[in-house]
Amino acid sequence: MKLTRKDFLRVLAGSAVAVGAGTLVHAVGSANDKESAGSTVGKKRWGMAVDLRKCREEKGCDLCSRACHRTHNVPQIPDRAHEVKWLWNERHDKVFPFQQNDYTRQALGETVPILCNHCTNPACVRVCPTQATWKRTDGVVMMDYHRCIGCRYCMAACPYGSRSFNYVDPRPYLGTPNPDFPTRTTGVVEKCNFCEERLADGKQPACVEACPRNAMVFGDLNDGNSPIRQLLSGRYAVQRQPELGCGPSIFYLV
C-alpha cells in the first residue's frame, strides 16, 4: 500500500479529531474533583472491609445499622415506600445477584450489611445537575442537603440502591434526635456520609465502633501499610458489581 502525503495528513487529522473527541467525552463523563483526577500519591481513599464470616456468626445482628441511624438522625419510617436507610442488612442473593449458583443460594441466605460504596467513579456524582453530591479528594462521596433540588437523578443512577429520598417530613419518625447532627427536610436525597463528621475529629465511623466483633475495618486504601490493606492482601474480597465500573470502596471478605 502506498501512502501519499495527502493520505498521511488526512489520517493524522482524523486521529487528532478522535483524540480530541475522546478527551472531550472523557471530560464530560468524569465527574471527580479536578485534584483527585491526577495521581493518588499522598491522597487518601477511605474504604471499608466487612468480614462477612463474622457477620454470619452473629446472625441477625444489626448493631452497626442502629448505631449509624441513631448517630445521623435517620428516621424509622414504617411505610416501605418511604423508607430512609444509610446502612442496613440485605439478603446475600440480593446484594450479590448472579454471583451464586443454584446450590449455594440456600447456604448464603444470610444478610449482608450494605451502605453507599463511596465509589471511585460514582454514577450519582456524574449525573447530579447541581453538584449537591460530589466526591471529595479523600474519597468520601458527600451530600450537600442545602443544595439538593430533589430531582432524584442520583437515585436512578446509583446502581446499588444506596440512596433514599425524603418523601415525607422525617422528623416525626425520629424519636429523640441526636442534637449533634442535623436532621433532613422533606424533598432531599440522603445517604451514608462515611461519618465524615467523625473522620474530621479523627474518630472511626460509628458503625465500625459499634461492632462488637470488629467485623468492619475502616482505613486508607491508598496506604499500603494500613490495616485495611493488610487485610485485603491476606483474604479473598469482593466488591458489589465491580463490572459496572463505579469502583466501590467497600469490600466484603467472604
Partner: peptide
Amino acid sequence: DMGQPARVLNVLLYPTPHSMMF
C-alpha cells in the same frame, strides 16, 4: 417532580456540564 422546587435555580447557579440534566 422536584422535591425542592424553590431551589430550581441551583441548576443555573452551579452549571454542571457532566450532568445530562443540565
